[in-house]
Amino acid sequence: MGGFYGVNGKKLQRQYKDQLSDFKTWEQKPHAKQWLIFPENIGRYLSIDETALSRGELYTIITNKKAKGKKGCIVAIFSGTKVEPIIEQLLQIPAKKRAKVKEITLDMANSMKTIARKCFPKAIQVTDRFHVQKLALEALQDIRIKHRWDAIDMENEQIKQARLKQKSFTPKTFDNGDTKKQLLARSRYLLYKAPSNWTENQYQRSKILFEHYPDIKLAFKLTQRLRDIFNKAKSVEVAYTKLAHWYKDVENTGFKAFNTIANTININYRSILNYFINRSTNASAESFNAKIKAFRSQFRGVKNIEFFLYRLTTIFA
């Protein structure tokens, strides 16, 4: 943009930082690298999540859902995810303000739950449904990947044996032209989607995949049933019953990865069931994280964390 007006971009940025903005006199500058708090932005519905600002360094961010990712959405930003210093700073906010919070959405990290419980004691904790579904999808993909490695090992062994016999090797293909290795690799994306969203090619590939790998078919059905519970259950009671049946079916499969998910859901079932009260998700926090990444890429990374946070909070806090 600076080049369009015949101004050197780096020089303009330096002048903005040193002269045009109030960055040097910014009252939060002394502690900006550790924490930033804006108590005036606290609302009834909050989200808490973590994101990477620079070089993979994680920051914990609390946002106000009502602001919808615009001015006034940032409630607090903390360097790292360590619980004690975050709680220490949040407790500096008057209890009356913190008591305003009625609901807070988060993931299944114990650190997030502890922060929410101690700093916003009157708020209902809601585990984000998409984090739960993501665990199930990862377990499904884990089964597919194991079969893929087996297929690669088998094909490598067949190639080796063919070479020892001085013969050429041509792998067998299915009706859609995929080899076993290709079938497992190319099935990745269709397993993320509901069957109603499959293309004709994906439908054909799924039919072959499920015929040859019944465990993948069973795992896929489990992930779809979990998705349907979140989509279709109309009350906490109905969801509780359906999750209990789902949990029992998972135990019967013997899938280690899915048993881990089922146990995780069992441990966090109260906050997971709270989703069915207002059907709240952490989508606003994820959306804000995307905005931070776009903001970061626009300025070609984060060279000065303090100045980056100053610009970020100037726009969003």
Rank of each mutant, 00 (worst) to 15 (best):
D107C: 06
M108L: 14
S111M: 03
T114S: 13
I115L: 05
C119W: 10
C119T: 05
T127W: 00
T127N: 12
T127M: 14
F130D: 15
H131V: 02
H131A: 02
L135W: 08
E138R: 09
L140G: 07
L140W: 01
D142W: 15
D142T: 12
I143Y: 00
R144F: 04
R144Q: 09
I145Q: 08
K146T: 04
K146F: 01
W149E: 14
D150L: 14
A151N: 08
A151E: 13
M154N: 11
E155Y: 00
N156W: 15
Q158K: 12
I159G: 05
L164Q: 13
L164A: 10
K165F: 04
K165C: 11
K165Q: 15
Q166V: 01
K167L: 14
S168D: 15
F169T: 00
T170S: 11
K172E: 11
T173R: 15
D178I: 04
K181V: 07
Q182G: 09
Q182P: 03
R186G: 10
R188C: 04
R188P: 08
W198E: 01
T199L: 05
Q202P: 02
Q202I: 04
R205A: 06
K207C: 06
F210W: 07
E211T: 05
Y213I: 01
Y213T: 01
D215M: 03
I216R: 02
K217M: 09
A219G: 08
F220R: 01
L222F: 13
L222N: 04
R227C: 07
K232D: 13
S235D: 11
